[in-house]
Simulated scan of single mutants.
Amino acid sequence: MGFLRSFSLLCLISVALAHEAFDSHLLPRPLILEFPEGVVNQVKELDGEIKLRCDSWRFNVEANNLNPWKRIPESCSEYVKQYVTGRAYQLELEIASNEAQVFAKTVKLVGDGKDVWVFDIDETLLSNLPYYTDHGYGSENFKPDEFDNWVEKATAPPLQPSLEFYKELLDLGFKLVLLTGRSEKQRECTTRNLINAGFYDWDRLILRRDDDQGKSAILYKSEKRSEMENEGLRIIGNSGDQWSDLLGTSVSVRSFKLPNPMYYIS
């Protein structure tokens, strides 16, 4: 009888609790929620599909198949963030610089001081990642005034593989020309930033003058390279993060494209 009374009392308490408002604090800790296996697999497949699509998108960006584009796909913002802040980006920078160095060492310089290597600056020598960290890693529309304010600070860090390659080229005897889309009015802060980042002894720093404004990057940089050739300079190598740094006329013997999935310049 005692057992029956206890069992009946337990049933009555269970019924009473079933009609009370749900209180999560009554649940044991930690609370573990288990989803059906099909739901878990579906979430994993979705994440894998997004990564696959963003991998494919970045590949086609680097192959110049998607030009022109203004922003990274919204679904790839986290993917680009992880890429540019992770090991993959650094490794690809290292490979590009190492391969360029291998080529440079095979070049037999004439010795007349006219063998030139051309470098872009932004995302080639200097990294604007601190700026793009605050602007969605390329997911926001580009704001020229805000970027100019960042440039004026002259605090962009060096891309270390590029810095090491730059110094190796100096040791090999190349003349170094820095050809950038930055404005002539930014010469002082650009020079200061380059020196503070460890770059020095370049032969010339070419920036956009007033009469260069409005020209596409390909046209502007082609014209400047043509002027170099007219002076008798031999453009042996060219390093840049944009295809517009490398294409056009008066191109180098070898060109080396550095990765950049954050923005596109035509």
Rank of each mutant, 00 (worst) to 15 (best):
W202P: 01
Q101A: 11
S139K: 12
E184Q: 14
T249F: 06
L258H: 09
V61T: 05
P144Q: 06
F3M: 06
L10T: 07
E123A: 09
F256I: 01
L17A: 05
E184L: 13
Y79P: 03
N128I: 05
L194F: 11
I206L: 14
R71V: 12
F22H: 13
G136V: 05
R87I: 04
I235C: 02
Q101D: 08
N41A: 14
N41M: 11
T180P: 07
Q42I: 02
S6W: 11
F199K: 01
G232V: 02
I13Q: 09
R234Y: 10
N260V: 06
I32M: 13
Q101P: 00
R192V: 08
L246P: 02
Y264K: 05
Q42Y: 09
I206V: 15
W243P: 02
V116W: 02
W150Y: 15
T85S: 11
G214I: 03
R58K: 15
F35G: 04
L109S: 00
Y79D: 07
S139T: 07
G248D: 01
N238H: 15
V102R: 15
I95V: 15
T133Q: 15
R192G: 07
R71D: 03
K108P: 02
S250C: 04
S252G: 08
T249Y: 05
S56L: 14
N149E: 13
K185F: 06
V61N: 00
F3K: 10
D134P: 03
L52M: 13
L33P: 04
L17S: 03
T190G: 08
K51H: 15
M1R: 07
K114H: 13
R254M: 12
T180D: 05
Q160A: 12
V61R: 00
E188V: 13
L4M: 06
R209G: 15
L33I: 14
K215W: 05
L179T: 01
N65W: 10
R204C: 10
C54R: 01
G2E: 10
E168W: 02
F103T: 02
E146T: 07
R225K: 01
R204G: 05
S139D: 09
C189N: 14
K108G: 13
D112M: 07
N230L: 04
D203M: 08
P261Q: 06
D201Q: 14
G214C: 05
Q82M: 10
Y200T: 11
R5I: 03
L27N: 13
L52T: 13
D122I: 07
E168V: 10
N149H: 09
A217L: 10
E99Y: 13
K51C: 11
L179M: 09
A197P: 10
R29G: 08
T85M: 09
V251G: 04
L91G: 10
N60Y: 10
D120W: 02
L169F: 08
S14A: 14
S56F: 12
F59S: 13
Q242S: 09
I13S: 08
D47T: 03
G237K: 00
Q42H: 11
P144W: 06
T106K: 15
P259I: 05
L178Q: 00
V118I: 15
N67F: 12
G240P: 03
S75I: 12
